[in-house]
Design a protein around this nucleic acid. Structure first.
Lengths: 114, 114
DNA sequence: TCTGTATGCTATGTTTTTAGTAGCAATCGA
DNA sequence: TCGATTGCTACTAAAAACATAGCATACAGA
């Protein structure tokens, strides 16, 4: 792993250091949002459970994302496995409306492909 | 470009076809959210303006993302340049709270690194 | 009509990221 | 001590992204 995007510090692509760009950089990596989403939906689970719940994700990428998300204080690893931190759950709650909206988006997309 | 993640169709990584996973796949590509964000903040702009406003993004990736976001009906290209569609603006509005939250996240992260 | 400028890209070669598969060290219960 | 589970790491190959150069078109002014 290189490093996680840190607000205030220039990150991949964006030099602004704007927190939202740092967050976009972090979440704009493959599986990042999917992992947080899955983890919050299913509750604490082990590395392998998480891997299975995500459908198909290589252990390399899963482990890399887990490290990044832990450094970003969005998830942590307790006795009962990986789970979202309170801050991670906050972010999940902000993602929830997008989850609902994605259903409408899917419908419009489907219609446009008739 | 390969293809955009389409809800209902298996996409990279996830076999569920769940719309949110398709959306995460689309938005979880480098610069995808940053482009939508920038475009909605600055209003319609040309390819090169957008490129400049994003700070640093290669034309290859910008063009690839633009194609994907257009296929996803989130942005389009009019006479006055690229701009978000109504649906793209809806999504932007859902991202806005995350933009606000990212400030708090940045503060907590900064404290944890003292 | 001959510049000069802007626009929307494409081409090419290099680096980075992700995928896919195998397997290891540590822990735990039977 | 045996097997099962857990949390990974190693390795190779494929895909994505970066960086830079440059092309084709359109338009404007001299």
């Amino acid at each position: 792993m290189t490093s996680i995007p840190t607000p205030g510090t220039p990150v991949r692509g964006s030099k602004s250091g704007d927190p939202i760009m740092a967050l976009f950089d972090l979440l704009g990596r493959r599986w990042a949002m999917g992992i947080l989403w899955t983890l919050c939906k299913t509750g604490p689970c082990t590395f392998r459970e998480l891997q299975a719940n995500c459908g198909s994700i290589s252990p390399t990428v899963l482990n890399t994302r887990l490290k990044e998300l832990r450094l970003a204080l969005l998830i942590d690893h307790q006795d009962d496995g990986y789970q979202a931190t309170p801050m991670g759950k906050e972010l999940y709650n902000l993602l929830l409306p997008i989850g609902g909206w994605s259903g409408q988006w899917a419908n419009v997309l489907a219609e446009s492909n008739d």
